[in-house]
Amino acid sequence: MRDILKEVLLLKAEMMSQTGEILIGLVVLIGALISALSAFGLVRLPDVYLRSHAATKSATLGVLFILAGVFLYFAFYLEHVSAKLLLGIVFVFITAPVAGHLNGRAAYRSGVPLWERSVQDDWSVSIKKEREKQ
């Protein structure tokens, strides 16, 4: 009786561990799919600003999903809570939007044209004033 109970418990633990592995694999797969969507936006969208929007936001989300999946896997299955990986997650989360913003500002100031069907361009007014003052 006792042996059977032990066996059932072992089997249950194994099933739960396999389920967890599949869940973590699915998190990583979702991250990869979001990154692929963002690459699709980078290829298909019409001008620099829309493309940089696609490349910055959704690529960051995809990478965060993948790194979170890797962190969970190492924490639960290999008993290694990695501070380096946490630091990497925080670093990507902070710097990717900053880099996208810098790139978009540099594009605007160097005169890359907007898409011809854009409806609003607020910065052109203040930049014109700034250039007249100089």
Binding site: A32, S38, A55
Partner: peptide, 9 residues
């Protein structure tokens, strides 16, 4: 930039 981030993942 995006290639770097994808390489990381």
């Amino acid at each position: 930039d995006m290639i770097g981030v994808l390489l990381l993942s």
